[in-house]
Design a protein around this nucleic acid. Structure first.
Length: 296
DNA sequence: CATACGTGGTG
DNA sequence: TCACCAAGTAT
């Protein structure tokens, strides 16, 4: 059957650029495990590369396999996660390790649907593991990919709000047929978005596709779509209170008492919301003797 | 589909 | 100083 997909003109120059300019990152080393890829992708969800690298290396040294992580209580995962942020990810990664142990004989699955069934694994992570760890030909779409496509293909400064179907189709249309080239391109376009086609100060002077970029051709029009929701201030937020309580829970193996929680934040209503949220999320559990502990 | 969810770096 | 950003997911 004739292939009617658009010719992927972006992949060759981006892959060539990637081959020559890719950063030397742990998850790009030869022999890096599928488990390592899964752990790295969990950590990279909303946390910058430079903060992830040392935590990832320590994590894999301590827990080199899913079974190793599954064999310790979730509390140890949360402690090791430390200040990476969004500590639910540590809980989810621990749960995923248990599921991999139980359902997949301790081997990280290579099937997108099986990956999606793991706790904390969504569209991006499932496809990233299938493509990067196993070389499968799937479109992988993250925030960098969406920005590069918005600029180079659609000629817009910023992408439209995420749409799973549209985003996957747009990436599929650019993806090379060859499995190896496709896997490389998934990583290459993300890298281009991260270090050249950056959100703030794009370095168009060194961009390998500046000559075919629709945004450049259109004269770099400013973003005119709907304003993205402003990120709320962290200082004084419920998130900050949760963070304070989590830091206290991580700092000890003894129960954190109600009095200690009170000492962390003066506003009672906010304190109660934060604590209730942590209990609901399973990041804290009531201790039999009173007070609160990390789970497991 | 909008919102909650941590933490730290940057211009 | 402060708004924005950083390889998302679950609800």
């Amino acid at each position: 059957m004739k292939d009617t997909r658009p010719v992927p003109t972006l992949a060759p120059p981006i892959n060539a650029w990637f081959h020559a300019n890719a950063r030397d990152l742990p998850w790009r080393r030869d022999g890096f495990s599928a488990w390592g890829t899964l752990v790295s992708e969990f950590m990279l969800q909303q946390t910058p590369v430079n903060r992830v690298i040392p935590k990832l290396e320590a994590w894999l040294e301590r827990w080199p396999t899913p079974a190793a992580l599954a064999s310790v209580p979730a509390s140890e995962a949360v402690r090791a996660w430390a200040t990476l942020g969004y500590p639910r990810r540590a809980l989810w990664l621990h749960a995923a390790a248990v599921q991999i142990d139980e359902r997949h004989g301790g081997e990280v699955p290579d099937d997108v649907d099986e990956l999606l069934a793991l706790t904390g694994v969504g569209d991006y992570t499932a496809r990233a593991v299938a493509a990067f760890a196993y070389g499968h030909r799937h479109p992988v779409v993250d925030t960098n990919t969406r920005r590069v496509i918005a600029r180079a293909v659609a000629g817009q400064a910023e992408p439209a709000p995420p749409s799973r179907t549209r985003d996957l189709e747009a990436m599929e249309a650019l993806l090379p047929d060859d499995r190896g080239e496709a896997a490389a391109f998934n990583a290459a376009i993300m890298e281009l978005g991260a270090v050249v086609c950056a959100a703030k100060s794009p370095r168009c002077d060194v961009c390998p596709i500046r000559n075919v970029c629709a945004w450049r051709a259109a004269g770099y029009p400013a973003y005119d779509g709907p304003r993205k929701a402003m990120q709320k201030k962290y200082e004084g937020s419920d998130r900050q209170v949760r963070g304070l309580i989590m830091a206290e829970l991580r700092s000890t193996h003894r129960p954190v008492t109600d009095a200690e929680v009170v000492s962390l934040w003066s506003d009672a209503a906010q304190r109660d919301r934060a604590l209730a949220g942590l209990l609901a999320d399973g990041l804290a559990v009531p201790a039999p003797s009173g007070g609160y502990l990390l789970p497991g």
